[in-house]
Simulated assay, not measured.
Amino acid sequence: MTGTRKTAVLICPGRGTYNASELGYLAQHFPDAGMLAGFDAQRRSADQETLTALDSADRFSLSRHTRGDNASGLIFAATLGDFLSIDRDAVEIVAITGNSMGWYSALTCAGAMSPQDGFTLANTMGTLMQEALIGGQLVYPFMGEEWTPDIARRDTLLGFAAQINAQPGHVLLLSIELGGMLVLAGNEAGLSAFENAVERIDCRFPMRLGNHAAFHTPLQHPVARKGAALLGAGLFRQPDIPLIDGRGSIWWPHAVNTAQLRDYTLGYQVTEPYDFSRAIAVAAREFAPDLFIVTGPGTTLGGAVAQSLILADWRGMDSKTAFKAEQTKSAILVSMGMAAQRLSVTAN
């Protein structure tokens, strides 16, 4: 990358982003063989398949690669590797945020955990989620094809979910505010009731997310308790770069109470809704970056970032057409999972 140094907010993706097209991502992009070997050593000591073996498999397997105990480590490593590959002489990272388990990656990229400790966090929580596998998740849009904000429709859908949740034996709760999508989580009765009642859209939605539990809901309290018992306070430290969490709160360097950061990470972040849209709005308004950089793996989070910026009325964008015009003019969104865009923020 050449030219004037630009400011950027880094965005770390969550579960569901390491898929068939990402097979081999670590082999191609991870810049530190010794660090990756350390991650693999942690996996071997826990009798888990190494990231190297998973990433170098002959073919992608849904049952193997999307399990929480495998996917979390793969996604964490891919994200961290991309962060380490950014040309810091050309790009100044002014804040970091993430979606869902991307918070664990964000903590590490910001320096609030060492890479090995961050991997321990991501791998432990992913394994605990997989072992418990409490409930599930689905995705449903409230924006149309032009991404025009429709808050009334969002509120209607959430009201309908609340009605289902009030029925005996049914659990259905907001899990993630993901741009123009609502991620809902609950038990089988709650999820099925929603799926059977709402209009199908594009033959895709409502979309059930495979190997996903009811993340960011009170159903995860048992997982949160186990995580807190296993992951000590010594893992957390002062960040070097501001962090924006799933409430839109900013954790500033040199001003963080690390005990509170641990409590949020292993408590609220696990059992309460994750507002990714608000995190992006705060990033835009508080830091006004030149760029929003979405690390790999995958390319699916870019749409949610764009939709979140539209919801925030960032730079007057009010639709997909307006976003595309701004992107053509300023290239404000960089997805490192796309080869051409990746080259714009890396040294080679």
Rank of each mutant, 00 (worst) to 15 (best):
R5L: 02
Q341I: 02
A255W: 06
Y104E: 08
V9K: 10
L128R: 11
H212T: 01
P253E: 15
G169K: 06
S100Y: 15
P141N: 09
A166V: 14
P222H: 11
Q48W: 00
D32S: 15
G159L: 00
L178Q: 07
P149F: 01
D318A: 11
R88H: 13
Y18G: 01
L235G: 09
Q167H: 11
R278V: 04
I201Q: 15
P141D: 09
C12M: 11
A152T: 08
H216N: 06
G3E: 00
G210F: 09
M101N: 08
P141K: 05
L333A: 09
L51A: 05
P242K: 10
N211F: 02
T124Q: 04
P297R: 15
T148Y: 08
Q48T: 03
P242H: 08
L51W: 13
N165C: 12
A110W: 10
R208D: 04
G296D: 09
R225I: 13
G234N: 12
P222N: 05
L54T: 09
R278M: 07
K226T: 02
D290R: 11
A132S: 13
F39D: 06
L266K: 04
R315N: 13
S330M: 05
A41P: 07
I164Q: 13
Q260T: 05
E146R: 06
K320D: 15
L138W: 12
N187M: 14
G38Q: 11
T127P: 04
D55R: 05
D263L: 09
A233D: 08
M336V: 01
I96M: 04
A152V: 01
D32H: 14
A331Y: 00
V139Y: 13
E272W: 05
S63A: 06
D263T: 09
E131C: 07
Y104K: 07
E272G: 02
I164S: 13
L343Y: 04
A214R: 14
E146I: 07
G180Q: 01
C109I: 03
M143R: 01
T79N: 12
D245K: 06
H216Q: 09
A110Q: 11
Q167R: 15
I250K: 12
I151L: 10
G126E: 08
M181W: 03
S319P: 09
N165S: 11
Y274D: 13
H65G: 03
A106S: 08
L291M: 08
L84Y: 10
A110N: 09
G248T: 03
A281C: 10
N196Q: 14
R225P: 13
L36S: 10
L230M: 06
G210P: 10
K6Q: 12
Y274C: 07
L138N: 02
S63C: 01
W147Y: 07
R247A: 13
N196V: 02
G38S: 10
T66M: 04
T124N: 10
R315F: 08
Q42D: 07
Q28K: 13
H254A: 05
L138A: 02
V345G: 14
C203V: 07
P149W: 00
D58T: 12
